[in-house]
């Protein structure tokens, strides 16, 4: 895509850094892993940008992100992936907490906890779709599977998630 040919890696960092960080955090529930991943991805983008050939930039970037993520998991002894409370990142935890605030914090934690219980392929598809906001085509390109597989992974991820979560009435 011509619109991305003038991007520098710093541009990529500023434009996509938050998304990459959030992507990794949502997949692992672990801020250290998320930070490591951002650094690794930016390094790979820096090396790869020169040889990047026109195509879907999102697909290219998220393929790099995904591969870096998977490599990181392979290398590392898995740390326990207990999710931090959302309050560490949002203002929710810091404010005086009426019951509703607590309920909402718990809700977000519950979703994070449920996410990390999903099988990796499903979790990845759901996070790419609903957290990062990629299209099905972009997810197919990033994960190197046919679009039909993307459809079914997203669906099965959501189905499992809904079974893991109990909904407030």
């Amino acid at each position: 895509m011509s619109e991305h040919t003038t991007l520098t890696w710093e541009d990529v960092a500023h434009r996509y850094g938050r998304k990459i960080y959030t992507f990794a955090y949502r997949l692992t529930g672990n801020p250290d892993d998320a930070a490591d991943l951002v650094q690794e991805v930016l390094l790979r983008v820096r090396k790869g940008l020169a040889s990047y050939t026109p195509g879907s930039f999102e697909g290219w970037l998220w393929r790099i992100t995904r591969n870096a993520f998977l490599d990181g998991i392979r290398k590392k002894k898995r740390r326990p992936t207990v999710p931090l409370p959302e309050g560490d990142f949002s203002a929710l935890g810091a404010s005086p907490s009426p019951d509703e605030v607590l309920a909402s914090v718990r809700l977000s934690d519950d979703v994070q906890a449920a996410l990390v219980k999903l099988p990796y392929d499903f979790r990845e598809a759901v996070v790419m779709c609903d957290v990062v906001g990629l299209t099905y085509e972009e997810i197919a390109e990033a994960t190197d599977v046919p679009i039909g597989t993307v459809r079914s992974r997203i669906h099965r991820g959501r189905s499992m998630l809904r079974d893991l979560l109990t909904w407030p009435v």
Partner: peptide, 16 residues
């Protein structure tokens, strides 16, 4: 539920 989870702030030292 997934979409309503907040976007997280990236620690600033990670950005160039």
């Amino acid at each position: 539920a997934v979409r309503l989870m907040p976007m997280l702030e990236i620690p600033s030292h990670l950005l160039p």
